[in-house]
């Protein structure tokens, strides 16, 4: 799949992670938007309407769960696939994120950047927005 026109929003409070992610995904032809907290993430999501959102759960100002709920309520953003990317792994967190409408749930520590590129590509290929 041609990823040149795909636009990804990465909502993550750790600056170094955003930098490494942006470097890798831009190298692969994606356009990357970055947000360092939940409120900023929500604003960019509504303004840019990206093709995919990568969302951390522990975020300043607005948690990832709150962002996910708002994204799913908003008619403009409810079809955007949201990949939760976090270090939380408790069954309650996974179930809650999926119940709120996360497309898939990934644990950061288990993914190298190359694995993540492959996973995102696969999500973008397989995601068919509900109409």
């Amino acid at each position: 799949m041609d990823t040149k026109n795909k636009r990804i929003l990465f909502i993550e409070d750790e600056e170094a992670l955003r930098g490494a992610f942006g470097e890798t995904f831009q190298r692969d032809g994606y356009t990357v938007f970055e947000a360092s907290d939940g409120e900023d993430g929500m604003l960019i999501a509504k303004k840019e309407l990206p093709d995919l959102i990568l969302l951390d759960l522990i975020l300043p100002k607005k948690s990832g769960f709150e962002v996910l709920k708002e994204l799913r309520k908003n008619p403009d953003t409810k079809h955007i696939p949201v990949v939760v990317l976090t270090n939380l792994e408790g069954s309650e967190d996974v179930e809650r994120a999926l119940a709120y409408g996360a497309t898939t749930y990934l644990v950061k520590a288990n993914y190298s950047l190359d694995d993540l590129v492959a996973k995102i590509k696969s999500v973008l290929e397989h995601h068919s927005p509900a109409l």
Binding site: E14, A16, A20, T24, R27, L88, G90, S112, L113, D114
Partner: peptide
């Protein structure tokens, strides 16, 4: 253990990604 593992995993995964970027084969 659950709290420790989360708090150690956050910097560990950050280090993993930062090394990924620095590796020569991953640099365009």
């Amino acid at each position: 253990i659950s709290i420790i593992s989360h708090h150690l995993r956050a910097p560990l995964s950050a280090i993993k990604w930062q090394i990924d970027v620095l590796l020569p084969q991953n640099q365009s």
